[in-house]
Design a protein around this nucleic acid. Sequence first.
DNA 1: TAGATTGTTAATCGATTAACAATC
DNA 2: TAGATTGTTAATCGATTAACAATC
Lengths: 218, 218
Amino acid sequence: MSEENKSGIPLPTIRRLPLYASILFNARDGKQTTISSSYIAKELGLEPIQVRKDLAGIGITGQPRIGFPVVELIEAIEKFLGWDNTSDAFIVGAGNLGAALAGYPGFKKHGLNVVALFDCDYSKIGSKIHDKEVFDIERMGHLTERLGVSIGILAVPAEVAQAITNLMVDAGIKAIWNFTPTKLLVPNGIIVERVDLAASLAVLSSKLTAAIKGKKSN
Amino acid sequence: MSEENKSGIPLPTIRRLPLYASILFNARDGKQTTISSSYIAKELGLEPIQVRKDLAGIGITGQPRIGFPVVELIEAIEKFLGWDNTSDAFIVGAGNLGAALAGYPGFKKHGLNVVALFDCDYSKIGSKIHDKEVFDIERMGHLTERLGVSIGILAVPAEVAQAITNLMVDAGIKAIWNFTPTKLLVPNGIIVERVDLAASLAVLSSKLTAAIKGKKSN
DNA sequence: TAGATTGTTAATCGATTAACAATC
DNA sequence: TAGATTGTTAATCGATTAACAATC
């Protein structure tokens, strides 16, 4: 038990919530107080009924003829996704990608606060990247405990991904956002979510191949 | 028509192919000539039958009692995903993320060759990032045509994502790998695949919330 | 041969979509 | 009221999984 998505809300729905949020932010900025499922759907290329199902999932109901309350919806999504109370996170690996993630301005809005980076390269340790200090990875255990950090963003070379993951788990990290192409082995209870660039690129190129074939056969 | 995944292979299968490839590379390095679906499945936390279905999809059959031929499988996956003949690509946006992507060593293996970057910041134009030149975005149309590039990697700030996309489409880019949080509007026939960090983070935090709740209720 | 592993065919499962009554 | 938009209930769809005969 406790291996599965406990909230009862389908994962595809959860993935769409940030998209809804962005439409809703625009609506709020435009002083709209209500919004219809068909408007949201049109903006995102979805079906209205899917939008309604998804929104019902996080407990917001609309009013027939009126639509959904914009602000209430925003608050419900922010609460559900934890955007309202920020979690601290470490970035592990201060290379190209780690540095880019440290400078990414969007995380704050999404409830993620990067407090520090870790690396094992002495030329980086002690320096600052985007105003965040790079610590010796040896100190991760100590700092994880002291600062109560539970999220680690893994941005190291693939070759050392598993070894560094082990260090993160030992350090007390509970959730790993994995930017490496490695399928990580972790103990029960540790959460891993991978940003799978290879999968995304595979989809892109298969679409491209299909498009070219489609054109040729016309 | 031609809007859908024409290859007939389900998208989830396509996303798993790179995972299979990584297991197969290991097997080949270990001089294994055959591999069973249950071994692959165990390594990836999948069901053996799912692995067999997926592999059947790309046209490779195994032998009862023996398993699947490692090298043949690798070649089939590489061919299907276009890893065997490299496509050139531009990175548009030479900021933190664009620079990190320009230095990412994995693209070559996945059939993607970054030939140049584009930006509109004159302090960057003319410089080199990871040995790749940064060009004025004004020249994108010219260079897209001259070099026959069809893939653009979009790594600009969200605010300008749509505007730069329009430039890319005008320049002749056929497929956009979108690293921004923006849902892009593109003409028919232009392919967009988005790396949706917000969706991934949403899944991570909902899992984390569920895990904490689960623990509390125990 | 015996047994491991395959491919095929059918069942299940979960998400999406359709139909439509309810309602502001 | 009339009509737009909702929520509910049921149907569809596609992917996953199960059962099992085929086969090396």
